[in-house]
Amino acid sequence: MTTLTRAARDSGTMLGRQLRHMLRYPSMTLMLVGMPIILLLLFVYVFGGAMGAGPGTMGAGPGTASGSRTEYLHYVIPGIVLMTVASAAQGTAISVAMDMTEGIVARFRTMDIARVSVLTGHVVGALIQSMLSVALVLLVAVLIGFRPTATLGEWLAAAGLLLLVSFALTWLSVALGLVADTVETASNTPMGLMLLPFLSSGFVPTDTLPVVLRWFAEYQPFTPIIETLRGLLLGTEIGGNGVLAVAWCAGISLAAYLWAKRLYNRDPAR
């Protein structure tokens, strides 16, 4: 058996372990997907009437009236979707920290399995959970009036971008879970990923923000990702945001992977 085949086999075993955890402890999955849905309903039905009343700032979806809640629903969906991905990544940090603090990794180190398979199982499991969560959030959005204009090719491009984002944030969360001393720390450290969409173009146009916040919002990674998703789903202008979004995802993925690998390889069993 080649090294690659062995690593793939062991990674599949670890993926099965993660999927069984999701089935046995569905409360974590429900919590991670429930928060973005609650935020979606909150922003649309509590703030949507006021936020959608700006003069032509929200980028209406197909067949919507200016200033309506439906208009704001179309504007806010990309930001909510990105928060869903970030929420799933937070769950990964908690899961990794639990493995590192409860001694199971120490047992894995003594077994004849590929070292890479432990982290790979976490990452692939998180990607599956993340995509299922995004699908559920989009289903709720459609039920309350979201009507995207995307073609099949644009849907595939949006799904590919979401996979890239999820891959990047998951590896970052793996590293944060490895560096955390406790599960409680791991649950709090990735909270910044949940807050970044609020400081982007996810909920209001960046030109409505104060100067300092506007500068931060325009140059942080979530804004080009959100603008690319918005363009793919609703036909708005993407410009150079697509290239920036892919570049940010690739850079974060590489840096986070190298960081997580270094932490895992040096970290003694706790």
Rank of each mutant, 00 (worst) to 15 (best):
M31P: 01
V85E: 00
Y45F: 15
I128C: 01
A88R: 00
G125W: 02
S133T: 10
A86C: 10
M98C: 06
L127I: 09
L32P: 03
V140I: 15
S133L: 10
G34C: 05
V33A: 11
E71G: 09
I80H: 01
A53F: 03
I104Y: 02
T57V: 13
M51G: 04
I77M: 14
A106V: 05
V142E: 03
F47Y: 13
S95A: 15
V81T: 12
V124Y: 01
T110P: 09
L30Y: 14
G49D: 13
I94A: 07
L42F: 14
G52C: 03
P148H: 08
V96I: 10
T151D: 08
V85Y: 08
G79Y: 05
T149W: 03
I37K: 09
A86R: 00
S117I: 14
I94Q: 08
T92Y: 01
L73H: 06
P36L: 05
M131P: 00
D99V: 14
P62L: 11
M83P: 05
V137M: 02
V118F: 08
F108E: 12
I94E: 02
L40Y: 02
A89I: 05
S95E: 06
G54E: 12
G34P: 01
V76F: 05
G59P: 11
M83K: 07
T92L: 11
Q90R: 12
P36I: 08
R69A: 08
A106F: 03
G125P: 01
R147C: 02
S130E: 06
Q129V: 07
A141T: 04
S130V: 08
M100T: 11
L127P: 03
V76Y: 02
G79C: 07
L143T: 12
L30C: 12
L139G: 14
S68P: 07
S87A: 14
T64W: 08
S133N: 11
I128Q: 00
